[in-house]
């Protein structure tokens, strides 16, 4: 890879991995906990957020030289709210069942701190292409995070994956997993796994992995 390609890839992977919004930055927890009762909900929410992220960051970046800093938050929020509205209509057009399952959390993408955070910290300072690549990475990272929760919660809490029954009729689902407490359990387990893994890769003893500062 030449340096330009490498930079783009790096920009993308930042959100997917090193700065993963769910597992590393622990941002956007409201949808992360609330909609991940099934894999399909998780993917839909992730893709909706990804779309809003990429479009908003693209437009914020295009407007960056025209945006006085005094009005920037208003500008970002209007832009984000616009794309959320578009996604809202699009999901209604695709499937009402999905729309009902995601409920108010589609509209709440407006206040997802990942998006405003990206607009402020990255898109406002970079040209459109890198801004959108970076946003796409964050969106993919967020989707992966949601999916990691959704898959585990659906398998344990309903005995299905993408709606397909895995264990047959004899399986007694672990209902707590699709209730709110289950979201916290599964998220906690993933965070633990990630922290342990990150420490191990950094060559630190596992014992210190619990000492978050």
């Amino acid at each position: 890879m030449n340096t330009a390609q490498y930079k783009t890839w790096d920009e993308f992977m930042e959100g997917v991995w090193r700065q993963n919004p769910v597992f590393v930055m622990v941002l956007g927890m409201c949808p992360t906990l609330a909609v991940t009762v099934s894999a399909i909900n998780a993917i839909s929410m992730g893709v909706a957020t990804l779309f809003v992220l990429v479009c908003s960051c693209g437009l914020v970046s295009l407007m960056r030289k025209l945006t006085p800093k005094e009005v920037r938050i208003a500008v970002y929020i209007v832009i984000i709210a616009t794309f959320v509205t578009a996604v809202d209509y699009a999901i209604q057009a695709i499937s009402l069942a999905l729309y009902d399952a995601l409920g108010a959390f589609i509209q709440l993408i407006v206040v997802n701190c990942i998006i405003l955070g990206r607009a402020e910290a990255h898109a406002a300072k970079n040209p459109p292409i890198p801004a959108m690549v970076n946003a796409a990475g964050m969106g993919v990272g967020f989707t992966i995070g949601l999916l990691a929760l959704g898959v585990v919660r659906e398998i344990l809490g309903a005995g299905t994956l993408f709606g397909v029954s895995l264990f047959g009729a004899g399986f007694q689902p672990w209902v707590i997993m699709v209730l709110p407490p289950g979201g916290f359990f599964v998220l906690g387990a993933w965070l633990l796994l990630f922290a342990w893994w990150a420490r191990r890769r950094a060559g630190l003893p596992a014992k210190e992995a619990t000492q978050h500062v």
Partner: peptide, 15 residues
């Protein structure tokens, strides 16, 4: 400021 807010509103309104 007014120009930018107006422009953003117009674009977003269209979308």
């Amino acid at each position: 400021m007014i120009r930018t807010l107006g422009l953003v509103s117009a674009i977003c309104g269209l979308i």
